[in-house]
């Protein structure tokens, strides 16, 4: 698996704001050395890139520029906080290019909506109820599919997470966890959502606009305003926007809002 030439330079480096936190670390010196070690360890982990090469899986353009590295990284793990729709949109990119996808532990996953996002149902494997064998099943599927969407179990030891993430990196698969993932390369969520088409007793749901936020472990936040149709790839509007607008949140806010309204 040779690294894609030049792509490593594109990688979004975590923000090294070491200077700002050093006084804070020094101020807590009185508490306990163990805490400080853990704190530093967490900071080191968050600043380390999890992959050696940043091979991108195809990603829906509307989401590509808010993800670190400009798209889903193979070997990466992502958390989607509160939206199955968003998770489906992440699956859609790889699936439309022929990758196998797997959905584990989600008996309520709607295949009809998945098809609406362009997910190839023939290459979509559903394991609705892995029961107590979640980790084994997920690890087995990491070996064979390119991208996995799952609802993580509540109790999973950090060591098991670390082993799973190592397996992901080794196999080049991406993991999308729905819910509260603790360790992931990026946490996405729908911060605001508005539906069109519904009145007071009339009409039906037609379109949705969402504000999607992506939080990196370093605390860096990016967001984008997208419509449901952008995620489904039915409009190519987002392609006309610069692929990577400057990361300042304030500059992103105004023009995007004007555009989508």
């Amino acid at each position: 698996m040779p690294p894609a030439a030049g792509s490593a330079l594109d990688r979004a480096e975590p923000f090294p704001d070491a200077g700002a936190s050093r006084p804070g670390a020094a101020g807590r010196r009185g508490t306990s050395t163990g805490d400080i070690t853990l704190d530093l360890q967490a900071r080191i982990n968050s600043m380390q890139a999890s992959t050696l090469d940043s091979r991108c899986l195809p990603t829906v353009p509307a989401l590509a520029h808010i993800l670190p590295g400009g798209g889903l990284q193979s070997g990466g793990s992502y958390t989607v906080r509160n939206s199955t729709t968003l998770a489906m949109a992440l699956l859609a990119g790889p699936s439309s290019t022929g990758a196998w996808c797997s959905v584990i532990g989600m008996p309520d996953f709607s295949v009809e909506a998945a098809q609406g996002f362009g997910i190839n149902l023939e290459r979509l494997i559903l394991v609705p109820d892995p029961g107590s064998q979640w980790l084994t099943v997920t690890a087995a599927l990491v070996d064979v599919v390119s991208i996995i969407l799952t609802r993580a179990p509540d109790h999973l030891a950090p060591t098991e997470w670390a082993r799973l993430r190592a397996r992901l990196r080794q196999r080049g698969a991406a993991l999308i966890t729905l819910g509260n993932g603790k360790q992931s390369d990026s946490t996405l969520g729908v911060a605001e959502s508005a539906w069109e088409g519904l009145g007071s007793g009339s009409g039906h749901l037609r379109a949705q606009r969402m504000k999607i936020t992506a939080t990196q472990p370093s605390g860096r936040l990016r967001h984008a305003y997208v419509g449901l149709a952008d995620l489904q790839g039915t409009t190519r509007e987002t392609l006309t926007t610069p692929p990577r607008p400057s990361a300042g949140p304030a500059s992103l806010f105004e023009p995007q809002l004007a555009k989508s309204s």
Binding site: L126, A140, D143
Partner: peptide, 22 residues
């Protein structure tokens, strides 16, 4: 894929690994 899914099926049973149609 077939090998991997067969492994999961032998863990969970035939009906636990599914594909969907509309």
């Amino acid at each position: 894929i077939h090998h991997g899914l067969a492994r999961v099926q032998s863990m969970l049973g035939h009906g636990a690994v599914l594909t969907g149609i509309i």
